[in-house]
Amino acid sequence: MNKKRFGVVATLATVTTLALTSCAANEGGSATPDGGDAGNESTLSGTLVGIGASSQGSAQEVWRASFQTANPDVTVEYSPDGSGAGREAFIAGGADFAGSDRALNEEELSGTFGKCVEGTSALDLPVYISPIAVIFNVEGVDSLNLDAATLAGIFAGTITSWDAPEIAALNPDATLPSAPITAVHRSDDSGTTENFAEYLYAAAPDVWTEEPDGEWPSAFGGEAAAQTSGVVDAVTNGTNIIGYADASRAGELGVAAIKVGEEFVEYSPEAAAAIVDASPRVEGRADNDIAFELDRTSTESGVYPIVLVSYLLACEDYQDDSVAELAKAYLGYVASAEGQAEAAEAAGIAPLSEDLSEQVASAIESIQ
């Protein structure tokens, strides 16, 4: 089966389970969009400014709409300019919070943040878990199997034709065209790119020799497109073309199944959540700074390895108490069972597990 979008039944089942089991995760935080107890009239007001990952774009639209409806005197802005732009804006003080498809690194954490109290740091809050889909539009091909080495060769430019023996061996029943491959990558500094590259570097290091980064390696060619929408548009409107994008944006495009162990795994919310739960947190960080080292080489059955964990970045201590109040309420809603359920239905994310939801809720509650 060529799964072109998340299964609605599976997603709703996950949402229902989460809604029933995650109540504890929201104690002390906001489980409803009004930023307080259910049924209470909102007293929040002001504007909260966010910039960042375009992967979160669809989910942020839903989160903002629900939160602003419940809080009519609040405006939440989110500009999906990309992970790099979000981190830069948050560090410089141009945004109250940021969306990033990777956690802040040690160098960034050791610096200052424009909206935060001097001497304090920032928090990484994982709120958006999604597979990265390998999307394709190839003449006569409805389904496609790829392993790490072949995928790395395609994007590194060493496999250049769709009927190359490496691709043919993985797809014996497909009629592959004798046509050049056009591989599309992000032109902007992108967390999606960095997560995609992390998988290739971990799973096919002999082929993908460049260390992962948010910017595409200059040593590799391909066609560049700006942001998630640009990559999706290029693949949609091209021929014999392949790219990568947050799975929520795959639409009707073909999506490759990725070899894990001895099976080819199609993306799903459950497969994405499974690899996060099986992965360790980054060591040496504050308890409320939650960042993961994803196990990209897992061979466990049903695990999809090309996953991004997208974070919201916030101050642990804001200079402006009114901003802190808004940030705490909005982020609390985003991470709540209700917020995660809305994003799962609208954008196909994998809702936070009960354990991770409790960790994130505790971190948000610590914001001052």
Rank of each mutant, 00 (worst) to 15 (best):
E106C: 01
G111P: 05
G111C: 13
A164H: 15
A164M: 03
L170A: 06
G111S: 15
A164C: 01
P165L: 09
A98Q: 08
D147F: 01
I135T: 08
D173S: 15
I154C: 05
N145W: 10
I167V: 15
T120G: 02
N105A: 12
A174C: 12
A148Q: 02
C116Y: 00
T160P: 14
E107I: 13
V141R: 08
R102W: 15
G114D: 04
L151C: 04
I129L: 08
D147V: 07
S130K: 01
A148C: 01
E118A: 14
I167Y: 09
T158N: 11
A98G: 09
S100K: 08
E106V: 09
A156H: 04
F113I: 02
V138S: 14
T160G: 04
I159A: 02
E139C: 06
D101R: 07
E107R: 14
D124E: 10
N145P: 05
G119Y: 06
T175F: 10
S121I: 00
G157Q: 05
I135F: 01
A156I: 00
A103T: 10
T175V: 15
A148V: 02
T160K: 11
R102G: 14
A169E: 11
I135M: 03
L151E: 07
T112E: 12
S161T: 14
F155T: 07
N137I: 07
G111N: 14
I159V: 07
T120I: 03
I154M: 08
F136Y: 15
C116D: 01
E118Q: 10
V138R: 14
T120P: 00
F155R: 03
A174E: 15
K115R: 11
V141I: 13
N145L: 05
I135K: 00
C116I: 05
A148E: 01
P172N: 09
T150M: 06
V117M: 05
E106D: 15
T175K: 14
I159S: 04
A168H: 08
S110T: 13
E106I: 10
I129T: 11
G119L: 07
Y128K: 10
S100A: 15
E108N: 11
E118C: 00
G94P: 07
W162G: 10
Y128M: 12
D142T: 11
I132A: 02
L151N: 03
A122N: 04
A122V: 00
N145R: 10
D142R: 07
V134Q: 07
T175W: 11
W162N: 08
E106K: 10
A133I: 10
G114Y: 04
E107L: 13
I135Y: 04
L109V: 06
A103W: 08
L170M: 04
D101L: 12
G99Y: 04
